[in-house]
């Protein structure tokens, strides 16, 4: 399974090793890791809760992966997205793409993240000393997704 939705943390090195195991035809592996960032904004982030829609999340990620594989000659894809309570600095999401040459791996990783941001059913709630608030969707993320459809 190249798509996983889990509470547990992941090991980036182990995931790259697993993706490449037993293969000598892969020329490039790109990895993207998203982290819980302390947004500042006057209040320190104490934690972030990630909620998701079990079932739909996995389907959405598999659809996004299939779209990437249709566009680029990928030899492997790994998408891991965490949910639950996460502390500042914690890993949230991992995207790995493998291809014979780097261009496809770089582009596909960016595409996967842009699509995941707007199409995978996750919602972030930040908690600071002032209480909790749901993170608003960013227009920049919508624009980032749209450019792949032009």
């Amino acid at each position: 399974m190249s798509v996983r939705v889990q509470e547990d943390d992941f090991d980036i090195g182990a995931e790259i090793d697993a993706l490449c195991e037993g293969r000598v035809d892969i020329g490039a592996v790109v990895s993207f890791t998203g982290l819980v960032r302390d947004m500042g904004g006057g209040a320190q982030l104490s934690s972030m809760a990630l909620e998701h829609y079990p079932g739909m999340t996995e389907r959405a990620l598999e659809t996004i992966e299939a779209e990437a594989r249709a566009r680029w000659p990928l030899q492997g894809v790994t998408i891991i997205h965490r949910y639950g309570e996460l502390a500042p600095g914690a890993r949230i999401v991992l995207v790995l793409t493998a291809s014979p040459h780097r261009a496809a791996a770089f582009e596909a990783a960016e595409f996967l993240m842009d699509y995941l941001k707007t199409r995978a059913p996750f919602w972030k709630k930040e908690t600071t000393e002032h209480g909790g608030h749901w993170v608003d969707a960013r227009e920049a993320d919508d624009l980032a997704e749209e450019r792949w459809r032009q």
Partner: peptide, 10 residues
Amino acid sequence: VAFFPPMTGG
């Protein structure tokens, strides 16, 4: 049927 705000994953 599910209702939710715009997604904010990643």
